[in-house]
């Protein structure tokens, strides 16, 4: 099952929820995405969550905080979470903002994240 609303899309693939955040997401939309993801992690017993932010050209303090919360919520619901696709310019800007994304594991690509989820569950 998949859904795609304004904030982003969520697809279930082999027990892993793939979350794609849309370009230029608004604050309201990303909060909606957070609710939808929490529901689906619980109802579909996802083992893992991969949040793809490669479409995002900017991550400001609000979006950064919501992404950190997404990862924390998934972890509390017993799903391992990876953040993938961060652009170099976004990483450098987050450092300048003094933003940390605690408890958020990052992987360079979707393939890396899936490999790590598989090796941990096997």
């Amino acid at each position: 099952m998949s859904d795609a609303l304004d904030g982003g899309s969520i697809h279930m693939v082999d027990g892993v929820l793939l979350v794609g955040i849309h370009e230029d997401v608004t604050d309201t939309d990303i909060m909606g995405l957070q609710d939808r993801l929490a529901d689906r992690v619980a109802s579909e017993r996802a083992q893992g969550v991969v949040i793809d932010i490669s479409a995002l050209e900017i991550v400001d303090t609000f979006v950064g905080r919501v992404i950190a919360q997404l990862a924390n919520i998934a972890r509390l619901l017993d799903a391992q979470t990876f953040l993938v696709g961060m652009r170099p310019a976004v990483a450098m800007t987050l450092v300048e903002l003094g933003m940390h994304l605690p408890e958020t594991r990052t992987a360079l690509s979707l393939t890396h994240a899936m490999e790590r989820l598989r090796s941990n569950s096997g």
Binding site: E57, I58, V59, D60, F62, A89, T93, E96
Partner: peptide, 17 residues
């Protein structure tokens, strides 16, 4: 360039919000 754009647009986003 990408880095300059990301930095300034991030600042604008903070201030506008």
């Amino acid at each position: 360039r990408a880095l300059g754009r990301t930095r300034f647009v991030t600042a604008v986003s903070e201030i506008a919000r």
